[in-house]
Simulated assay, not measured.
Amino acid sequence: MKDFEELTSIEMVEKFIQQHELVLLYVSRSECSVCHALLPKIRKLLESYPMVHLGCIDANVVEEVASRFLIFTVPTMLLLVERKEFIREDRFVRLERLEEQLQQIYNLYMQK
Results as ranks from 00 to 15, higher is better:
Ile17Trp: 02
Ile17Met: 02
Ile17Val: 14
Gln18Asn: 14
Gln18Val: 07
Gln19Thr: 11
Gln19Leu: 13
Gln19Met: 11
Gln19Glu: 15
His20Arg: 08
His20Tyr: 13
His20Ser: 12
Glu21His: 14
Glu21Phe: 04
Glu21Ala: 11
Leu22Cys: 09
Leu22Ala: 11
Leu22Met: 13
Val23Gln: 03
Val23Ala: 07
Leu24Met: 14
Leu25Cys: 03
Leu25Asp: 01
Leu25Arg: 00
Tyr26Phe: 15
Tyr26Arg: 04
Tyr26Gly: 07
Tyr26Val: 07
Tyr26Ile: 05
Tyr26Cys: 08
Tyr26Asn: 09
Val27Lys: 03
Val27Pro: 00
Val27Tyr: 01
Ser28Gly: 01
Ser28Lys: 06
Ser28Cys: 00
Ser28Thr: 05
Arg29Met: 15
Arg29Trp: 03
Arg29Cys: 12
Arg29Thr: 13
Arg29Leu: 14
Ser30Trp: 08
Ser30Gln: 09
Glu31Lys: 13
Glu31Gln: 15
Cys32Met: 05
Cys32Ser: 11
Cys32Gly: 04
Cys32Gln: 02
Ser33Lys: 08
Ser33Val: 11
Val34Met: 10
Val34Ser: 08
Val34Asp: 04
Cys35Thr: 00
Cys35Asp: 01
Cys35Ile: 02
Cys35His: 01
His36Lys: 15
His36Cys: 09
His36Ile: 12
Ala37Asp: 12
Ala37Glu: 12
Ala37Arg: 11
Leu38Thr: 11
Leu38Val: 11
Leu38Pro: 04
Leu38Ile: 11
Leu38Gln: 06
Leu38Gly: 04
Leu39Asn: 06
Pro40Phe: 05
Pro40Ala: 09
Pro40Ile: 03
Pro40Gln: 08
Pro40Arg: 05
Pro40Thr: 04
Lys41Phe: 06
Lys41Gln: 14
Lys41Arg: 12
Ile42Tyr: 01
Ile42Leu: 10
Ile42Pro: 01
Ile42Ser: 02
Ile42Val: 14
Arg43Gly: 02
Arg43Leu: 11
Arg43Glu: 13
Arg43Gln: 13
Arg43Met: 12
Arg43Cys: 12
Lys44His: 10
Lys44Leu: 08
Lys44Cys: 01
Lys44Ser: 07
Lys44Phe: 07
Leu45Gly: 10
Leu45Tyr: 03
Leu45Asp: 07
Leu45Thr: 10
Leu45Glu: 06
Leu45Arg: 09
Leu45Lys: 06
Leu46His: 03
Leu46Ile: 03
Leu46Ala: 03
Glu47Gln: 10
Glu47His: 02
Glu47Gly: 03
Glu47Tyr: 05
Ser48Pro: 00
Ser48Arg: 12
Ser48His: 13
Ser48Leu: 11
Ser48Ile: 03
Ser48Trp: 05
Tyr49Phe: 15
Tyr49Cys: 11
Pro50Met: 05
Pro50Arg: 03
Pro50Lys: 05
Met51Ile: 10
Met51Arg: 13
